[in-house]
Structure formats: C-alpha cells, structure tokens
Amino acid sequence: MREILKHTPGKIFIGVLFVSLAGMLFITRYFTSKILVFGWMTLPLFAGFVFVAVWLIAYLIYFFKFWPYK
C-alpha cells in the first residue's frame, strides 16, 4: 500500500475504493424500499454487485496499468 500511495494514480485508486465504501453505507437508508432490479434482485444484492464491479474495474485499471510492482 505504501507504493500505491506514493503516486497520483494510486491515490485516485484508493480514493475510488473509499468513496464506494461510503456509498455502500449511504445507500442503506433506501433498503426499506421493496424495489426489485431485473424483477428479482433485492437492493442489498444489487448494491453489492455495483460495489464489487466498481472495485473490480478500479483494480483492473490500476494494477494492470499503474502498479509499480507489475
């Protein structure tokens, strides 16, 4: 992590992960709604899918393009 925080792409990467975590906490206030995505996905499931997708994309971009030890 020390190597990640030493350059701008790494700081952006960590920032994206933190923002997504904050988003996961923020969105819980809407979980009382009985909204179903695609007809069956409850909101906690859908929110997690989006969260994992954000981490996956951020990781792919950073680790395969900018990670100093790649």
């Binding site: 992960l17 996961m24 819980t28 909101l43 906690p44 499931l45 929110a47 997690g48 969260f51 994992v52």
Partner: peptide, 12 residues
C-alpha cells in the same frame, strides 16, 4: 437480504 453486507465487506 441485508445480511449479505457481511459478504460484501468480506470480499473487500
């Protein structure tokens, strides 16, 4: 369904 948040935290 909210218990799945434990899994999302664990994955991270």
């Amino acid at each position: 369904p909210s218990y799945i948040y434990f899994i999302w935290g664990s994955v991270a």
